[in-house]
Design a protein around this nucleic acid. Structure first.
Lengths: 243, 243
DNA sequence: ATTATCTATAGATCTATAGATAATGC
DNA sequence: ATTATCTATAGATCTATAGATAATGC
């Protein structure tokens, strides 16, 4: 016990250990003592690897992003109305609940931690949020645009409704909002319907809001199929190496 | 200078002065030194009026809510589809941009401060958020429900779409999201269209998402009129005593 | 010989209190 | 006489560094 790691390994270990602390307590609430304890090293070692607490925090963006190679699975699908529906469902589900947590990795960086780091970032300068969105959302945009075009061509979507990127971002926003406003353990918002329906309701709202016709929604939005689809994607995620 | 206030006056003065500090730096980032300086009193006095920093923070909910008596203006309107559209526009505008800031009140509690206190609350136990929503949003719900019923009766809104309170809350959520994600000075989200259109785009998304028919939107959603309507409500707000 | 790591501690800062002083209301 | 307010400071905690020790790679 007390393995000696290389500089880079230890540096990453410290960063990983710091994520839950910064996520739960914010920059000011987190102490170097806690971070050192979580990383199982002395406080002094933190300062050998980083010039200061501020740097540990700002470097989180370089590590705290579990990048799933989803582009293969979903991105390879045909851009069409059905895919659009699936992608929106997937997006909102991913943002709201996050991917399933594998139980083998103990000190995994959880979705809750990511949510909180993001929320903190928006209260600060947004630096972490920019990096996160760049890495995890950006590459979806072009594929999503193609889906929209296909849907418009098929007559499944209003052409002159809102800006194409507004369609995308507001679907994202709905996911962010329900995920974010539901962070506290004690419920803040009382929707008046069971939590299990939240994803379904939110996706309906988003799909129609972005301009999908009622006929297209009736034809392509089937919650049971989408749940199966999502479970399938999640299954493949769990058997994937994290990068 | 150095006026001596009664206990209650001083207590409120401290709370008001503490709002910007807690809003900008969060509970842990705010120091009693700063709060005392902002309130122009000694640190010791804080502890004469409050048992501790924690209490100052938790008591913010009792003061930091500028309660506008809007129920008179908007709430007296006839519950109908047009009113529904106006209320949604008003809601999203209020959440996103907030009311206009009167320049006479210097150390006013700004909308930005409220946004940040709310955001911090959702990262904590949500206590402040519960109080805030209870006071400022709750009383809108029943009026909004009546508008929805009227719209459904008039054939302007899909009946079996999403839960009535989902219609309401998701409109709220869109306002929260765009307000929240746009807190940082340096832009995080690039919508691809001018910021001035954000409100318009968001309200369209919300109206259609909640189930309004395309015909009803074409008939009742007119951005220029709504802007005038909003300006009118804001005007009356500015000439109102704050309570 | 180099690099990772620790123990011990300095110096700053932060919350909170003790005890004194000044203003108000009877 | 009571209540508001201040100065001064204790005690805890927090960030960061100095200097010593132990493990690795040549």
């Amino acid at each position: 016990m007390g393995k000696r790691l290389t500089g880079e390994e230890r540096r990453n270990a410290i960063l990983r250990a710091a994520v839950p602390i910064f996520a739960r307590k914010g920059f000011n609430g987190a102490t170097t003592k806690e971070i050192a304890a979580a990383a199982r090293v002395s406080e002094a070692l933190l300062y050998k690897h980083f010039p200061g607490k501020e740097t540990i925090y700002s470097e989180l963006g370089t590590i705290a992003v579990r990048k799933h190679d989803i582009a293969q699975g979903v991105g390879a699908m045909q851009p069409c109305t059905q895919t659009l529906v699936s992608v929106v469902y997937f997006l909102v589900a991913m943002i709201y609940q996050g991917p399933p947590e594998s139980d083998d990795d103990q000190d995994e960086i959880t979705h809750d931690h990511m949510h909180r780091l993001m929320a903190n970032s928006f209260l600060e300068d947004g630096a972490f949020a920019r990096i996160f969105l760049q890495r995890n959302i950006k590459h979806w945009e072009s594929f999503f645009q193609r889906c929209i075009e296909a849907a418009v061509d098929a007559g499944d979507m209003l052409e002159d409704w809102i800006h194409p990127r507004a369609r995308w971002w507001f679907a994202h926003h709905i996911g962010v909002a329900i995920g974010y406003l539901n962070l506290p353990e004690e419920q803040v918002i009382h929707y008046g319907f069971p939590r299990e329906q939240l994803l379904d309701q939110a996706v309906r709202f988003a799909l129609r809001g972005m301009g999908l016709t009622d006929e297209a929604i009736a034809r392509y939005y089937h919650i049971e199929e989408l749940e199966r689809f999502l479970a399938g994607v999640f299954d493949s995620l769990l058997n994937q190496p994290t990068s």
